[in-house]
């Protein structure tokens, strides 16, 4: 038996909204420690890694580890029915064929219960080594989201350069070229603050289309941490009370 009660159901709604355009069918691994998932997008360019810690749920029980194959598209449809103030219970019997979702209103005035049919999915688990990155950028998630969105109007590729003092977001398109440079600072204003942890200068190119999809998670966390090393995928990490959502994106290489 697996059962998890989340008092703040909105966070689950936001998580699923943040991944549904990247991955449509995923295996959730449930254990006594956590609910987790790892899934690549269809083109194998981006990877989503989610961990929700059991200890952060109001109630949590998992008698034996289980893999739950879920259509994210259909889960998103059901979660749309849950109110923003609702609590959410996730429940599955051992060797389950359905995932039960129970949404309960704040004053217990209304309860919705749905059984989502589970899928049997092949999983493609990537072995991602723990590694030290050359540069780590911690900045406002909404500011990063805004920069990516605005630069998308110029072209589809973001050139990201980080040195010890600043980070530069540069683009080059048919209409011209441009860049936005932000200097490391410890401003009191969260949208201005930028922390750099750089051992080596890096300069890499990434598809803005994917970064824009990742930035849907900016509703989950005020900060985003970008980890960069030459010639390996960039990691965008959004941490929140319940756990963390990480996105990996393979860099673009010059032809």
């Amino acid at each position: 038996m697996f059962e998890a009660l989340l008092g703040n159901g909105l966070i689950l709604k936001k998580i699923i909204e943040s991944i549904k355009e990247l991955v449509t069918e995923v295996n959730f691994e449930v254990t006594s420690e956590a609910i987790s998932l790892q899934a690549m997008d269809a083109s194998h360019v981006a990877l989503v890694v989610l961990v929700l810690r059991a200890s952060e749920f109001e109630e949590y029980r998992c008698d034996r580890p289980q893999t739950l194959g879920v259509s994210i598209t259909n889960l998103a449809k059901l979660l749309k029915i849950a109110g923003n103030d609702d609590s959410i219970i996730l429940r599955a019997e051992d060797e389950a064929h359905v995932l039960t979702l129970v949404f309960t209103g704040k004053n217990n005035e209304k309860m919705c219960e749905f059984n989502l049919n589970l899928l049997t999915l092949d999983s493609e688990h990537l072995g991602i080594p723990e590694q030290e990155y050359s540069a780590e950028v911690t900045m406002s998630s909404s500011e990063f989201s805004r920069i990516c969105r605005e630069l998308t109007q110029v072209t589809d590729t973001l050139n990201l350069s980080v040195d010890k003092e600043s980070v530069k977001f540069a683009v080059s398109g048919d209409i011209g070229t441009g860049s936005i440079t932000m200097k490391a600072n410890n401003s009191d204003k969260s949208e201005e603050k930028l922390i750099l942890n750089v051992s080596d200068t890096v300069s890499m190119a990434f598809a803005l289309r994917y970064l824009n999809l990742f930035n849907k998670a900016s509703s989950l966390s005020d900060e985003v941490v970008l980890s960069l090393s030459p010639e390996v995928p960039v990691v965008l990490k959004f941490a929140f009370d319940l756990g963390e959502l990480k996105y990996f994106l393979a860099p673009k290489i010059a032809e």
């Binding site: 083109s43 194998h44 990877l47 688990h125 990537l126 072995g127 598809a207 995928p233 290489i253 010059a254």
Partner: peptide, 14 residues
């Protein structure tokens, strides 16, 4: 235009 790499070029499947 730069080419987009694939994640499997960086990480092995387990």
């Amino acid at each position: 235009t730069p080419l987009q790499n694939s994640l499997s070029e960086f990480y092995s499947c387990v």
